[in-house]
């Protein structure tokens, strides 16, 4: 019973974190058909930005929940500095190219960003553990959970629902949906597609930096944290179906629960269970679990 509960709770917590990390990736793919390999590096930059702000002398005095606002500000600033710049200056040059070429462009970008991180923040770890203790801890039977974990679950739900509602229930969302469906016709209808791309990419970058910013308190921030984040995000969005937000949520839960099961029941399999699940899902549903929902041009 303990084990079942532990797998469930740890799976949900890890899955929520994964969803937070991966949602930006799936959104950018959904709108722009770009599988953004630099997503991991942007996640790392978000973590550094949050740590830098929280640890700065100006914000250093802030106590309590307000720290969360400072972290959020770090994510927003990083996204606003990077998102429009990357989309307008770099990606725009390649829009006429194939999906796979864009993937390679972002691969090149991720190499550049990783070194940029080292140049700005150095190779030594940064920490910002303060907020981790904000929500106290919860004792459930023999197990302890940190309140912050449940905050991450809540954040994931808010971010996921928010994005879903904006896309499906607002005018802005309708415009984005139309661009997803067919950018040329949208353009003919008078939609400013370039602006939708700019907005969607910047929002995708923000989701990456947000995930990084709120992961920062749990970890030691090093230049390589993005590598692990991107590979996990790939697994999540491929399992869920590229471009689908519901898919990313289900994919994150599937990965979270299978990892938690492996750790509890079969620790040897921890590393490859994620890729085994990914292969299995692709085998049964070639476009991922929610692949059909994705509206793609043929």
């Amino acid at each position: 019973m303990d084990i079942a509960f532990a797998i469930f709770a740890d799976g949900i917590i890890y899955g929520a974190w994964l969803f937070l990390v991966a949602i930006g990736l799936t959104l950018v793919f959904g709108v722009m058909k770009i599988l953004n390999v630099a997503h991991g590096a942007l996640y790392a930059i978000g973590a550094y930005a949050a740590a830098t702000l929280v640890n700065s002398s100006f914000f250093g005095q802030i106590e309590g929940m307000a720290v969360l606002i400072v972290m959020l500000a770090g994510a927003v600033i990083a996204a606003l500095l990077l998102g429009p710049f990357l989309e307008r200056v770099l990606l725009r040059l390649f829009y006429e190219r194939d999906e796979i070429v864009l993937l390679l462009v972002t691969f090149g970008l991720s190499l550049i960003l990783e070194d940029l991180i080292k140049l700005i923040w150095g190779v030594y770890s940064h920490y910002v553990p303060g907020p981790y203790a904000l929500f106290g801890d919860v004792e459930i039977g023999p197990l302890f959970y940190v309140g912050y974990d449940f905050f991450i679950v809540g954040l994931a739900v808010v971010v996921g629902l928010g994005t879903y509602l904006v896309l499906n229930r607002t005018n802005v969302g309708k415009v984005v949906q139309s661009v997803i469906h067919d950018d040329e016709i949208s353009r003919a209808m008078g939609i400013n597609v370039a602006r939708v791309y700019l907005g969607a990419f910047t929002f995708g970058v923000f989701l990456a930096t947000l995930a990084g910013a709120f992961t920062a308190p749990m970890i030691a921030i090093t230049p390589t944290i993005g590598v692990n984040a991107i590979i996990l995000s790939f697994a999540v969005v491929v399992i869920g179906g590229l471009g689908s937000i519901q898919g990313a949520a289900i994919g994150a839960l599937v990965v979270g629960l299978s990892r938690a099961s492996a750790i509890n029941l079969w620790p040897e399999a921890e590393l490859f269970v994620i890729y085994a699940v990914m292969s299995l899902v692709l085998l049964v549903r070639p476009e991922g679990l929610f692949g059909q929902i994705q509206q793609r041009k043929i």
């Binding site: 770099l90 390649f94 462009v105 090149g108 190499l111 990783e114 140049l119």
Partner: peptide
């Protein structure tokens, strides 16, 4: 050693372009 990846990345972007 701390910026060769950046060089490779820029090289990749330029060659694709």
């Amino acid at each position: 050693p701390n910026s060769w990846q950046m060089l490779l990345g820029s090289f990749l972007l330029l060659s694709i372009l």
